[in-house]
Design a protein around this nucleic acid. Structure first.
Lengths: 332, 332
DNA sequence: CTGAAAGCGCTTACAG
DNA sequence: CTGAAAGCGCTTACAG
C-alpha cells in the first residue's frame, strides 16, 4: 500500500488540504502541525503522485527531448547536459528517439504532447513539423527546421567547415573530397556551404563528384571513402563531416592500406574521446556540444519561467575549434 | 486550447463515457457513433491526457531505467535496446542517472516511484537499495546487488575475464597487470575472480600491486597504466577491464611512447566501434550488450504481463566472446 | 491557521 | 448500445 495524503491526514487527524499545504511549504500552517505531518509522511514513506499533481495543477514539471539517436556521441553528450540542467531546476525529462524518420518524429511529438510536457528540445528531422495539442515552447537544437517562432541553438557549422577546408588549403591541398550525411539537414547544407566558401575564396571548384551525400552512418563513411579513393584525379584530402562518417572512413582507409596522412589527409567533424587514440590521431573540428546543450536548456528554461515575455525567437550559434592532430599533412 | 473528451462529447452530442469507449476500442459502441467520434477526435487533434489516464486507471504504462551514465557506450547501447522493446509493447520509459552515487540512486528511485512506474530496470550502485512506495518488479542489469527476489541479467563476467587472461597466458605472458574499476561492484569482483582463476590454473600468482582498483574512468585507466608500467618487475601485459579504462590506458601508452604490442600487450573489455580503428586495434572481450538489454526488457515485460505468477527470481548470464586483434602478442 | 468543497481529465462499473 | 455517476490523488480558492 502506497501512502497518500488521505492516509497522512487520517493519522494526523487533520484535513487533506492541511497536509498538502504542510508538505508543500505553504506558509499558513502552524509549526506544530507541519512538524507532525512531515514526520508522519516520512514514516509512511509518502511520495507525491505526480500524475495527480500534474492533472490538478495543469503543470507536469516535465520537458521533452526529441533526438535522432542516443548512441550518437554528440547527442548522448548533449542529452547528459540537458538532463542535468533540467533536473537542477526541478523538471523531469522525457526522451524520444526519431532515427531521423519524420513519421517517428510525428509519433514522438504526439507522445510528448500526451505527456503534457511543458516545453521541448527538438533536433528536427524534417523541414516542417507540427506540434499537436498544447502549443508549448520549443527550442531546436543542432539542426533547424524552416519553422519560425522557435529558438534555435547550434554550432557554427559554416565557419567550422570553412576553417577545416582552409586548413587543408593552407597545407597545399587542391583536390578535397567532402563526405556528408543527409542532404536535407540544415547542418549538411551549412557544412557544404562553408567548405565551398573556402574553396571559392581560393579560386578552386568543388566538383559534384567530390561531394558525397549519404547518411550519417559508419557504413556510408566507409563507402564514400572508397568512392573518394577511386576518383580520378584522386583527391589528396578527405573531409568527413561527422564522427560517424570519420569512423567509417578511417576503417575503410585501413582496409585499403591507405596510409594517412602520407597517401591522403583526413579531417573530421566532432570530437569523441577516441579521436585522440586512433590511427592516426584525427585532426578534427570540435563542436561545442557542451555549450549547445547548456544554451538549449537555458533558452527553454527561461521561456518556461516566463522571463522572456514572448520576445523574438533567439538564434544562437556557438563557435567550435579546429584541433590539428596527425591525420593532416601536405600532399605528397 | 487542447482537446478533451468533454469537447469531443459536446461536438458529437454524446456522453463523455461513450467517447472514451469509442476511442479505446471498446466493443459496445455502434459503428456510426464510433466513426463520428474518431473523426471528431482527429479533427480536434485530440491527445489523451496521460496523467488523467494514469491517475484513474492506476497504471502509468511507464517503466523506469536507472543507470550510472548515459555517456558510457555500454549503457547507451543497452538503453537504446530497452527503449525500443518497451516502446513496442506500449510502455513509456523514464530515465534516471546515478553516476554510481548511492544517494543519487536513492533520489532516482524516489522520483520514479513518484512517477508510478510499473517496473524498473536498475544498474545497482550499492549493495543494498530500497524501493520506496509501491513494490513493483525490478530487474537488475549488468551488476547485481545483494537483494533477493529480483531478476538479474548480466554478462558472464567471470568466464570473460578468465578467457582474456588465458589468451595472454597462451601467448606466454606471466606477469599480467589488471586494471579495474570500483572494488564494490559485482562486475569488478567477478572480473578479478575470473582473472585469478586463470592465473591459479597456470600456477601463477596475482600480486596485490598488479591488481589496480580505481574507478571506471579514462583518467584512472591512464593513471593505472602508468603505475603498471612503473612496476618492477615490469608486467608484460595489461588487462584493462572496461572500454573507458582501455581508452585511458591506450592514451597513456602513446604518451609514454610504449609500443603496443611490442613493449607490452593490452587487452580490453567491451567493444565500442572505435576499438577497431585505434592504434593498435584492440584485442578485447566483447560483452553481449544487445542480448543483455533484450533479456532485461523481456524479463520485466513478462513480470508486468503477469505471465510469471511470482516464480523464483531469474538469474541470467550471457556469454560474450574474445576478439583477437592486434594489441596482443608474445612477450619480448 | 484550518477545513469542506470543487474539479483537473479520464475510466469503469452500473443502470437502463 | 448509451448515459449518469463515482472516484483516482492532488491543489487551491473560499469561508471561517
Amino acid at each position: 500500500m502506497v501512502a497518500s495524503l488521505k492516509q497522512i491526514a487520517r493519522e494526523c487527524g487533520v484535513a487533506i488540504s492541511t497536509v498538502s499545504r504542510a508538505l508543500n511549504g505553504h506558509p499558513s500552517v502552524s509549526p506544530a502541525t507541519r512538524e507532525q505531518v512531515v514526520a508522519t509522511a516520512a514514516r509512511l514513506g509518502y511520495r507525491p503522485n505526480t500524475a495527480a499533481r500534474a492533472l490538478r495543477s495543469r503543470s507536469s514539471s516535465t520537458v521533452g527531448v526529441v533526438l535522432p539517436d542516443m548512441l550518437n556521441n554528440f547527442y548522448a553528450a548533449c542529452t547528459a547536459v540537458l538532463q542535468e540542467q533540467f533536473e537542477q531546476r526541478g523538471y523531469g525529462m522525457v526522451l524520444a528517439v526519431t532515427r531521423n524518420d519524420p513519421s517517428r518524429e510525428r509519433e514522438a511529438l504526439q507522445r510528448l504532447s500526451s505527456a503534457q510536457v511543458e516545453g521541448l528540445v527538438l533536433v528536427p528531422t524534417s523541414r516542417r513539423w507540427e506540434l499537436p495539442g498544447a502549443q508549448v515552447p520549443v527550442v531546436e537544437m543542432n539542426r533547424h527546421s524552416s519553422r519560425s517562432g522557435v529558438d534555435v541553438v547550434q554550432s557554427e557549422e559554416r565557419d567550422g567547415a570553412r576553417e577545416v577546408v582552409e586548413h587543408l588549403l593552407a597545407l597545399g591541398h587542391e583536390r578535397i573530397a567532402v563526405i556528408v550525411g543527409e542532404q536535407q539537414f540544415s547542418t549538411t547544407l551549412e557544412r557544404v556551404d562553408g567548405a565551398r566558401q573556402a574553396l571559392d575564396a581560393a579560386g578552386l571548384p568543388l566538383p559534384a563528384e567530390y561531394l558525397l551525400y549519404g547518411r550519417h552512418t559508419r557504413a556510408w563513411g566507409a563507402e564514400a571513402f572508397r568512392a573518394a579513393w577511386a576518383l580520378r584525379p584522386r583527391p589528396t584530402a578527405v573531409f568527413a563531416a561527422s564522427s560517424e562518417l570519420a569512423l567509417g572512413a578511417l576503417h575503410a582507409a585501413q582496409r585499403l592500406g591507405v596510409s594517412i596522412p602520407r597517401d591522403l589527409s583526413l579531417v573530421a567533424f566532432g570530437d569523441p574521446d577516441w579521436f585522440e587514440v586512433c590511427q592516426p590521431p584525427l585532426t578534427s573540428f570540435e563542436q561545442p556540444l557542451h555549450e549547445v546543450g547548456m544554451i538549449a536548456a537555458q533558452l527553454l528554461l527561461s521561456r518556461l519561467s516566463g522571463e522572456q515575455a514572448a520576445p523574438r525567437a533567439s538564434r544562437v550559434r556557438v563557435r567550435g575549434r579546429l584541433l590539428v592532430r596527425e591525420s593532416t599533412a601536405a600532399p605528397a
